[in-house]
Design a protein around this nucleic acid. Structure first.
Lengths: 260, 260
DNA sequence: TAGTGGTCTAGACCACACC
DNA sequence: GTGTGGTCTAGACCACTAT
């Protein structure tokens, strides 16, 4: 096509703010999804769609990327693209004042063991670099799929002593560590939410590709004035909506989950 | 290059999980940023970088896209790419139980007027479709740049009567509406955070390109058992970290902001 | 084996900022 | 102008899933 590039020709000579092609396409597709498709329905494949709209496949993919990021589409390699269900509401507010692993906590421990934390974690825990901590991995499942992966760091020094020794590793050890943690008084809590991208193993745990957008929730748990645990949870940004319910209001229109 | 595509050849025949080129590149660049650059410093231009790493410009850009999403790089068209400062912490927890526009609120009203809300907003406000609401636009500035744009919807019926009529439009009207709103009892509040992409005018307000990743914070304000206002705030995902401080802990290591 | 999405290339033009 | 990032193209191969 000799038509060059850079979006459609300006509709008017009077500076109509040239809209990128992929953005226009996103709008068309979003409207089509809303009006002509139902949840779970498959879209035509990318090559056909690109041809139908008269654009290169890369441009079409740019539009699909947007819609996937917004949680409106779901793409699976080797399978196809389908219309995504509404995002899962994950409530971070209701159980805001409880230790991880407290009764009602929906997270599933998958691994645990002593390890030397990343420098940033050591700093947040006010530990000298190189000091080992208990490194717990947990997963949150909702609607049949993993929606979040967590890494919980607990300095060895904060755990109260116990008669029974800790199991050497694995989920059993995680449960034991959390049980001991739960015997401490929880005197404060702190949360931060930001955007990140899934690393190689996070991506694997979340059933996504490396670099996928995730919502990173960092939680600091305080006991007696010091940070007793640090949780870094990564939620699939395409399928999750984090809620901080204050109560006193009728529920929103979807299927919520209570993880912690 | 006749080398085909799809990432580097597997290092071993034993299935070492071929790592995409752009992901490897992202790692290299991230390390370089940490060790060889300082905040604000400019990177070489994309064409040079691509040549240096022996990849196509599109592949390099895929890596830069990641780093920008993670808030580690800042790209400005016509200018260049620089190392970004740490994200701004925006505290959504401290003033969690106050109306928008209450004393100490750092948001700046920019526009206001009656309008018929989008269908989704009408539903959330429990209003019949087509019923007009007060539509307030506000902006949050931090460190000299806009970090968030908000749209606040207030049903006309909830506002208490007043002697003085509302100004016809503009920031004055916004302030008047918020002042009246503040005279109601705030009986509950509700928040949700999810990933979205900036629309055309949001993008303009945030000084970004259309489609940029934003953190969408939806807040419902309740008064006497009904939803009296709905705020949809979009924060620049590259520059913001949302915090929900519970107090009782020493501050994190950065420059926070108290918007509401 | 066929079909899908994911990655990569080499090249082009466009919009914008700065001189 | 010159140089930067942003958009777009046409075509190729790869990894995966299902048949």
């Amino acid at each position: 096509m000799g038509e060059s590039a850079g979006g459609p020709a300006p509709d008017q000579p009077g500076r109509p703010q040239p809209e990128p092609k992929y953005w226009h396409l996103r709008t068309l597709l979003a409207r089509a999804i809303d009006t002509e498709f139902t949840v779970g329905q498959a879209l035509p494949n990318e090559r056909d769609l690109a041809a139908r709209f008269g654009v290169a496949r890369a441009t079409l993919r740019q539009a699909l990327d947007q819609l996937e990021l917004e949680g409106r589409l779901q793409r699976r390699r080797g399978v196809g693209t389908t219309v995504a269900p509404p995002r899962v509401g994950v409530d971070l507010g209701a159980r805001a004042h409880a230790w991880p692993g407290a009764p009602g906590d929906a997270w599933v421990p998958t691994a645990c063991g002593p390890a030397t934390p990343p420098e940033a974690v050591a700093r947040a825990l006010r530990l000298p670099p190189g000091r080992p901590v208990e490194d717990i991995r947990r997963t949150l499942i909702a609607h049949g799929g993993p929606v979040a992966a967590e890494r919980l760091y607990v300095p060895l020094g904060v755990l109260p002593p116990s008669d029974a020794p800790l199991p050497p590793r694995g989920p059993e050890r995680a449960r034991a560590v959390l049980a001991r943690l739960g015997r401490l008084p929880l005197t404060g809590q702190d949360r931060a939410v930001e955007l990140g991208s899934a690393g190689a193993d996070e991506a694997r745990r979340l059933d996504r590709l490396p670099g996928s957008a995730v919502l990173v929730v960092t939680t600091r748990y305080a006991s007696s004035g010091r940070t007793a645990a640090l949780a870094v949870a990564t939620y699939r940004a395409d399928t999750c909506r984090l809620t901080f319910g204050g109560g006193h209001l009728p529920p929103r229109g979807d299927a919520p989950v209570t993880p912690r």
